[in-house]
């Protein structure tokens, strides 16, 4: 009897945790919910990349599809796919 009780309790606390994680989103969860939309990523060196967000991970590494590079607001380069290492990112604009 006891193990079954424990099990149901365990299940309900898991559900609670699941609901909590649905309502409170952390930055990476939020960014993964906007996969597919166009974003701008600004790096510490001032360069910006604008493209469609394809994927993101916990390090905030991102992959942008059809990305364009902007140096001082001028388009300088374009990439089909680009992987940006997370540590270089300063912020992301939708």
């Amino acid at each position: 009897m006891v193990p079954i009780l424990w099990y149901t309790h365990y299940r309900s606390s898991l559900n609670y945790f699941y609901i909590m994680s649905e309502t409170k989103t952390d930055p990476t969860n939020f960014l993964s919910s906007v996969i597919g939309s166009t974003i701008v990523v600004k790096l510490h060196n001032g360069v910006e990349y604008k493209g469609d967000l394809q994927s993101i991970d916990g390090y905030m590494n991102v992959v942008l599809r059809s990305a364009k590079e902007y140096v001082e607001d001028f388009e300088s380069k374009s990439f089909g796919d680009v992987f940006i290492r997370g540590n270089n990112g300063m912020y992301t604009i939708l």
């Binding site: 993964s32 394809q54 994927s55 991970d57 590494n61 991102v62 796919d81 992987f83």
Partner: peptide, 16 residues
């Protein structure tokens, strides 16, 4: 369901 979507999701390193 959240576990399943996490498994399906592509990570940035997959591009590499």
């Amino acid at each position: 369901s959240s576990v399943q979507t996490a498994a399906q999701q592509e990570e940035p390193l997959d591009l590499i």
